[in-house]
């Protein structure tokens, strides 16, 4: 977890930290793909954030303790950059008891209240209005926290985004909307889904501070984020669009037949991980060998998440009825128990 505001971190080491964190995100996502290939993931609805690492890392570096956030279905990288334990994440993706949500959530529903993660969402736009509420809580309880909604370009099709932006601006809430524009919602390119792809203009119309930043360079993202988040913390809600490219298919099984190879090759040139690496090397801040050593270390760390998640236990069947309601409340009666009771005879 990086804190861009930590005075001890000089500019040089900050870029190195960004690189390291982005590499962790990418490697983690690659291992998620591997878990699927090995038949060990719970299902195939796995949405990898490869190509979007600068959004996760550049924003999360500007979060503080107490800040809260919600993510969309492509949220692994964001949570990891906020300090998640990748092993528990992988276990959740494998549907295991040791996962963040005990195998009940899965890839699309990882959450950890301890880290301010109010939840990943499989409903496009579903997590957005919660940050308005979290912003109200921050305001009324004077916590100085900001609440962040991470979502994709596709979510700009949902009316609830506009309702939420309007409320945030009206009430001057400490809220930050982060739109990760990877150019696609499934097979639909952004210009096929909207007549005006300049998404930040919509936020301006509501009175939010709004910008678009190129996600190629994590330092640019960090800079834009720092400025907007400082404003949000002071009651000027903000909207940041991060332009990037979804390197692979929508979910693990999608081979992207709707776009051609030239486009994909070009899109993948917009690679924030490689960009940071090149900058570190060309500026003499780090050697290739140093970076390779980091990469290897990270590969080992992430390999271990696969072993961990495979070795862990399935949830117990009896856990099925737990957490529908609060602890201490009666659990729903299992259908079988009810039948046995109803049909019991002397």
């Amino acid at each position: 977890m990086i804190d861009a505001n930590n005075e001890a971190a000089g500019k040089n080491s900050l870029l190195a930290d960004f690189y390291r964190e982005m590499r962790r995100v990418r490697t983690f996502e690659e291992r998620v793909g591997e878990l699927f290939v090995r038949g060990q993931s719970a299902g195939s609805m796995l949405h990898l954030s490869i190509g979007e690492e600068s959004a996760a890392v550049g924003i999360c570096a500007n979060m503080r303790d107490g800040d809260t956030f919600t993510t969309h279905h492509r949220g692994h990288g964001i949570f990891l950059a906020r300090g998640a334990d990748p092993a528990r994440m992988m276990a959740e993706i494998a549907g295991k008891e040791a996962g963040y949500c005990h195998g009940k959530g899965g890839s699309m529903h990882i959450a950890d209240m301890g880290l301010g993660h109010l939840g990943a969402n499989a409903i496009v736009g579903g997590g957005i209005p919660a940050v308005v509420g979290a912003g109200l809580a921050a305001r009324n309880r004077k916590t100085n926290a900001v609440s962040f909604a991470f979502f994709g370009d596709g979510a700009t099709g949902q009316g609830i985004l506009y309702e939420s932006m309007n409320m945030a601006a009206l009430w001057k809430l400490p809220v930050m909307f982060v739109c990760i524009n990877n150019q696609y919602g499934m097979g639909t390119r952004i210009d096929q889904a909207t007549a005006n792809p300049n998404l930040h203009e919509r936020a301006e119309a509501f009175g939010l501070a709004a910008r678009t930043v190129d996600g190629l360079d994590v330092e640019d993202v960090n800079e834009a984020a720092a400025e907007l988040i400082a404003g949000a913390r002071a009651g000027q809600p903000a909207f940041l669009v991060i332009d990037c490219y979804r390197f692979f298919g929508h979910a693990r099984k999608d081979k992207s037949p709707y776009r051609d190879e030239t486009e994909e090759a070009e899109g993948r040139l917009k690679d924030p991980v490689i960009r940071a690496r090149d900058k570190l090397i060309s500026s003499g801040m780090m050697s290739e060998a140093d970076l390779d050593a980091w990469d290897a270390e990270i590969a080992t760390e992430m390999d271990a998440t696969i072993d961990f998640s495979i070795a862990e236990k399935e949830p117990q069947l009896s856990s099925m009825y737990r957490d529908v309601y609060a602890p201490g409340e009666p659990e729903p009666e299992p259908v079988r128990t009810r039948l046995e009771r109803v049909l019991a005879r002397e």
């Binding site: 959740e92 009940k104 099925m320 039948l339 049909l343």
Partner: peptide, 19 residues
């Protein structure tokens, strides 16, 4: 006999294939 319902449990669906 009473008419019996065999239906989904009164719980959300988990990602765990077992649950």
């Amino acid at each position: 006999d009473p008419v019996v319902r065999v239906a989904g449990e009164d719980i959300p669906i988990s990602v765990s294939p077992l649950l």
